[in-house]
Write a protein that binds this DNA or RNA. Structure first.
Lengths: 206, 206
DNA sequence: TTCGCAACTTATCACTTGATAAGTTAAATA
DNA sequence: TATTTAACTTATCAAGTGATAAGTTGCGAA
């Protein structure tokens, strides 16, 4: 075990990140204080600084873990060789179920907090976890003849990947979902995902 | 002139709102201090409190004006009786040109700052300015036979309005646009809007 | 048994925050 | 001309903020 691995398997260290993740994702970086996080962890505020260099570094680790977890989940979802429609539907449902907080806000914070180099690193994680899998779906879909030849609409697979991601991202409604019970939530997500995929594939025009 | 109208036409009052708008839209409510706004207005921080009861009230007025301006602009854009495709294209271009900051963040702030009643009032402004016009486009499009009968995809016009709005909203890329010159910006917006409308109307499926 | 060190705590720092109180000034009104 | 008042300013507040220094504790290795 390396020093880093010991640290990462420590219970307290993980608790801090889990709780910090909850707070940061719900309220954003600025609105969360180190004291709030520490209180929720039932430790004193300076104790945080034993595990993390500062608030920024804690936030960065939260982001890293979030994106890393997502990458694994999405790759599992997409490992089955399904048709495009089913893959997109699964992906949409995953996003609705797991990103009940605006990730747009997260990227806004990243832009204003971290320097350009760190931003690039984070963008790399995001691309690997989110964008690449969706672009893969699009590319596979074209190969299988399930999707249009994109040159017809003067677009690149990566552009369509972005568009799909943005459409789903823009449709997430964390506040609405929070007030539903599990059954209603499931129903809402199923219906919404179906609609989004339907429009993405067939459009609303005649 | 009522007392309110005098206040609203005052130069200083308007300057404060304009500058506050710029700051709030770029950084979000929490990240902007009353001192930053005051400094940019070249007045002292307590002078703000002569014009506004508090930071919250200033922010609320910024939101009201932003949504009100948008409502007027959009109604002008959509007053021409064009076909659905051209209307959506115009609308998309307007959004890209005028909302160079994430409006998602604005709604996040609203949710965490204001009480439920105030939130409802703001939602009313938003619905009137953004949602209603888009729903009108959809309804007109169905009447004119340019769009599918929505019962085919088990959807309501308002749902499709949301989806269109969210797709465009999610695709806004303020950071990217900021680094482009006017010509490149125009080109980017034109191209992106065309792609979005194309996918919304025809989809990417075969 | 002693030592070392991880994992804390208490106390405190400099700084920023939104907000208020009290005094000033210049222009409109009576 | 006297008075009022809008539009400020200076001074100051309490409540927070992220961060550091220095001391404590308890456990595992030597």
């Amino acid at each position: 075990m390396t020093e880093n691995q010991i640290e990462e398997s420590s219970t307290r260290y993980n608790t801090i990140i889990k709780i910090a993740q909850k707070f940061f994702m719900e309220h954003g970086y600025q609105a969360v204080s180190t004291r709030q996080i520490a209180d929720a962890c039932e430790i004193t505020q300076p104790a945080l600084y034993h595990h993390f260099k500062g608030k920024k570094e804690l936030y960065l680790e939260v982001i890293r873990r979030t994106l890393n977890t997502t990458e694994n989940d999405i790759n599992n979802i997409l490992s089955e060789n399904l048709e495009v429609e089913k893959r997109l539907h699964k992906f949409s449902k995953y996003m609705f179920s797991n990103f009940q907080e605006d990730i747009t806000k997260m990227f806004h914070d990243i832009y204003h907090i971290f320097d350009a180099d760190t931003q690039k690193i984070i963008y790399g994680w995001w691309a690997k976890g989110f964008l690449d899998p969706v672009v893969k779906i699009v590319e596979d879909g074209i190969k299988q003849g399930e999707l249009k030849n994109l040159s017809l609409i003067d677009a690149q697979p990566i552009e369509i990947g972005f568009l799909i991601l943005n459409t789903i991202k823009g449709s997430l409604e964390p506040k609405l979902l929070k007030n539903l019970n599990e059954a209603d939530k499931e129903f809402f997500i199923e219906r919404k995902s179906k609609l989004i995929v339907n429009v993405l594939l067939s459009g609303i025009g005649k």
